[in-house]
Design a protein around this nucleic acid. Structure first.
Length: 880
RNA sequence: GAGCGGUUAGCUCAGUUGGUUAGAGCGUUGCGUUGACAUCGCAAAGGCCGAUGGUUCGAGUCCAUUACCGCUCACCA
């Protein structure tokens, strides 16, 4: 690198090279090492069908920051990666591809289809992984896993069998959510409710043996084909006489009873509810209570089946129209009202879900949920930010049994075998020799596969070898933190937690760091349909992975959504460039220098000041990162590097570097280098590439920043006195600049700077810092003195604590402007004095506030009073 | 219907245990470029921290009420 460094940082040139270096050196790889403490993060496995989007970028950036941080702190850091088979998504993708070739899934058959899907996975399943690498993700790719690999599949079978034997997994006919397009059952978590404008159809059902009618209201008239009762509230006087009587179900001409059930809301609709036990969860419950038959009227594709009589074969919406039409003709349709209602849709394809009764496999949740609830309540499991435990607990406390069977081929096939002779179910990892009950050999395996989340639920331990008691599992498990979006708590976090407790006896992780969504500039969700998605890979290509990473964590608190914008990425890019150029500056000067002799005693106050600041920064950044306040930590780093280090320290140090005679040149370079290295190390987790590139150029002892030691707070880097001294200089410089800007004096116009103070130590500071005022305050000369002798009457002045600064400008005597300036200063000080004085006259403040606080206010008051006196004296002089 | 979050500068957002002068980036205004960076520097303007009440010596921060916005869950067929 050296002086030939480019003037601007060019990430494209270095990222790939450095990432390859890290891979070659095996820095990402972790092995069991009992001499070190483990730190483990398990990566949420992206779908093999996935393309990297901003959500992945954020999620993985956060994890990479944490894992790099901990690795540098000396932990044996393992970031366990892998991918998810994504049953429905992949099956749909492959099915569609086949369709293009003119082949149907069924034609191919199960085995042929699976073969094709594995091929598809071979070809495309690694795409998302290579995309994650572009972000700089330091996951242990040697350990990459797949939810359907041998080990994970074994874990799935083991869990299924254990839960089955414990009675927690059962097979039963229950109402489930059915997607007529995907033609599979889905779990409650996969149903997304949408507000839709619909109608209320009021229909008359004739009472048998009278000329009366009962009027019901429904949003789904087609389901009446499956009605097996009408329910009313037992206390509803309008209907008491009718309870127990029969109705003639129109169109089907089926006799159905009128039952009384408190489920019915008297106030709503007509107070009479048609009951379709096979197609509505509530009706299903009513049906159970009253022993009503369940008539399934629908085929798997959403068309009406033979139970729907003449409507058989029609699509569900077609049937609805036909039924309404016919009811109208029969004079049974009373009215149609507009009605908004929530419609359940499948979260993948947004098809309206059809609740229907089917024989499926379920996990009984009641017992499993208990330890997961307890974990959060007793603090074993902690959400960051904490309020997400409410969401978590609410879901768990109201959890229903989990429908885990899917009518798909791609996935873990349910390890259950049915006996053709006696009907007994045998659950076994491999096909059993014989039926466990009758001993016959006529066994067939269940056709269904398991919900994708069934295997994801085991991810934190299945990837480490479970059910085998491996070394990895023993050492790396439980993991330390799980990083994921709030949208995934129900699907995944909850299921991992109860699975962890059930199968390993402990929570799979201690902390759950929740992040929000990355939205577009207008605050909208990024989506394909809106076309407002921003491709992280394009951003990486254009601005570099570091800039993207920085953008994603800056100014964002855990759990909050953030907006992505071009402006933000530019700011990050500019920061990278700033870091680059500060380093470039250093390298241009350091080449020939020998710093081996420099010790802390050689440092000037400015050197000690920046070192001390850097030291404090180390402490704060480390603490913030331990608390997952990554945004806070990085903004402190940003401010330190840009303001303190670049704008002040480098500027202060320049004259020393340009002067080869300066005895403190070596100390300056020594400090520049050390502080820069501290800053780079702290920054590395956020911006791994640029920090590595610079680090390697800066020194030749260590081969990589990513395995270097995280800086620690050092008592010997604590220089309070020097910090104060530089604060005095900074304040003076700022005031001088301010003064000059107010008076419209161009920098080219140098001027003498007089400093008047009664305190010798203040004068000494200015005496030895005159060079700073020459470069930073455009001073031709700095003259510290105890009185005002020799200072021209019309000099412009400014007051700092314990001193007054005068600058005489030869041809500048805009008295009014100067008076206005000073009056503004006086006003500000008066405000401060009033405030401090008020506090100090408050008896309760004096008696109740901590003594140090009171003392601090006293000091402030004294300081401001003295300053105000100076300003007012000067004002009096100018006015007089 | 229930739960949660937000409301702070023109815009986008920080603000860690309450400490009295509330911060950043972008934008705006003025000045500035021969030796790190114009992807830059210097300076400035701009906020009674949604409203009301309370606790406290002290509230952007804690409590209560309320308004608006957003999210999630549960739903009345």
């Amino acid at each position: 690198m050296g002086t030939e460094m480019n003037k601007t940082y060019n990430p494209a040139e270095i990222e790939e090279r450095l990432y390859q270096k890290w891979l070659d050196k095996k820095y990402f790889h972790a092995e069991v090492d009992r001499s070190k403490k483990p730190y483990t993060i398990v990566m949420p496995p992206p779908n093999i069908t996935g393309q990297l989007h901003m959500g992945h970028a954020l999620d993985n950036t956060l994890q990479d920051i944490l894992i790099r941080f901990k690795r540098m702190q000396g932990y044996n850091a393992l970031w366990q990666p892998g991918t998810d088979h994504a049953s429905i998504a992949t099956e749909v993708k492959v099915t569609n591809k086949l369709k293009e070739e003119g082949i149907s899934k069924e034609e191919l058959g199960r085995e042929g289809f699976l073969k094709r899907t594995w091929e598809w996975r071979e070809e495309y399943g690694g795409r998302i992984v290579s995309q994650l690498k572009k972000l700089g993700s330091s996951a242990d790719w040697d350990r990459e896993r797949f939810t359907m690999d041998e080990g994970c599949s074994e874990a799935v079978q083991e869990v299924f069998i254990r839960l089955y034997e414990k009675g927690y997994i059962y097979r039963g006919s229950r109402i489930i959510n059915w997607c007529p397009v995907c033609q599979t059952s889905i779990s409650d978590a996969e149903v997304e409710y949408e507000d839709q404008a619909g109608f209320f159809w009021h229909i008359k059902y004739p009472v048998i043996g009278s000329d009366q009618y009962v009027e019901i209201a429904t949003t789904r008239p087609e389901t009446m084909l499956g009605d097996t009762a009408v329910a009313v509230h037992p206390d509803d006087e309008r209907y008491t006489d009718l309870i127990g009587k029969k109705l003639m179900l129109p169109l089907m001409n089926r006799e159905i009873p009128i039952v009384a059930d408190t489920y019915v809301d008297k106030e709503f609709g007509t107070g009479a509810v048609k009951i379709t036990p096979a197609h509505d969860p509530n009706d299903f419950e009513v049906g159970k209570r009253h022993d009503l038959p369940e008539i399934n009227i629908m085929n798997d594709d959403g068309t009406i089946n033979k139970n729907g009589g003449k409507y058989a074969g029609m699509d569900r919406y077609e049937a609805r129209q036909a039924i309404v039409k016919e009811l109208t003709e029969l004079g049974l349709l009373v009215k149609i009202e507009p009605h908004n209602h929530n419609v359940g849709t499948h979260d993948r394809c947004h098809t309206t879900v059809e609740p229907l009764v089917k024989k499926q496999w379920f996990v009984a949740m009641e017992e499993l949920a208990k330890p997961a609830i307890e974990a959060v309540k007793n603090g074993e499991l902690r959400f960051v930010p904490q309020h997400f435990d409410r969401t978590y607990l609410h879901w768990l406390e109201n959890i229903r049994d989990w429908c885990i069977s899917r009518q798909l081929w791609w996935g873990h096939r349910i390890p259950a075998y049915y006996c053709a002779d006696c009907g007994e179910i045998t659950v076994s990892p491999t096909k059993p020799e014989a039926c466990c009950k009758c001993g016959c050999h006529n066994l067939t395996q269940d056709e269904d596969t398991l919900d994708t989340w069934f295997s994801s639920a085991l991810w934190p331990f299945s990837t480490l070898g479970w059910p085998k008691q491996t070394e990895d599992l023993d050492y790396f498990y439980p993991t330390n933190v799980l990083v994921t979006g709030y949208d995934i708590i129900f699907f995944w976090v909850i299921r991992m937690v109860f699975s962890g407790y059930e199968h390993t006896g402990r929570s799979p992780f201690q902390d759950v760091l929740i992040h929000g969504l990355v939205r577009d500039e207008l605050g909208r969700k990024m989506s394909k349909s809106l076309g407002n998605g921003i491709d992280p890979l394009e951003v990486v290509n254009q601005y570099g992975a570091d800039a993207l990473r920085l953008t994603l964590v800056t100014g964002n608190a855990p759990g909050n959504d953030m907006r992505y914008s071009e402006k933000k990425i530019l700011a990050s890019r500019n920061f990278a460039n700033k870091v680059w150029n500060a380093s470039r500056f250093m390298l241009m000067n350091i080449e020939k220098a020998d710093l081996s002799d420099v010790t802390l005693d050689d440092l000037t106050p400015a050197d000690k000041w920046i070192l001390s600041k850097a030291n404090t920064l180390v402490k704060e950044v480390t603490e913030n990162m331990e608390n997952y306040d990554l945004g806070v930590a990085v903004s402190k780093l940003y401010d330190f590097i840009w303001e303190e280090f670049c704008d002040w320290y480098i500027e202060m140090v320049k004259p020393r570097l340009w002067n080869d005679e300066d005895a403190s040149k070596g100390a300056a370079l020594y400090t520049l280098k050390n502080v820069l290295i501290i800053a780079l190390k702290l920054l590395h987790p956020y911006m791994p590439f640029i920090t590595e590139e610079i680090f390697c150029s800066l020194q030749d002892e260590e081969e990589s920043i990513m395995i270097s030691r995280w800086p620690e707070f050092r008592e010997d880097y604590n220089f309070k006195e020097e910090e104060n001294e530089v604060e005095v200089i900074k304040t003076a410089v700022r005031n001088i600049r301010n003064m000059r800007a107010d008076m419209n004096v161009p920098p080219s116009k140098k001027a003498k700077v007089y400093v008047v103070s009664e305190k010798q130590e203040i004068l000494d500071i200015f005496d030895r810092s005159s060079v700073f005022f020459a470069t930073l305050g455009y001073a031709s000369e700095v003259i510290p003195q105890t009185d005002k002798s020799g200072i021209p009457e019309d000099a412009v002045s400014t007051v700092i604590p314990d001193a007054v600064i005068y600058i005489p400008f030869a041809d500048l005597v805009d008295l009014d402007k100067e008076i206005a300036r000073l009056e503004k200063e006086a006003k500000r000080l008066a405000g401060e004095i009033k405030r401090a004085d008020g506090m100090l006259h408050n008896e309760k403040f004096l008696s109740k506030a901590p003594a140090a606080k009171v003392e601090a206010e006293r000091e402030k008051l004294a300081k401001y009073t003295a300053m105000a006196d100076q300003v007012n004296a000067r004002l009096a002089q100018l006015k007089g």
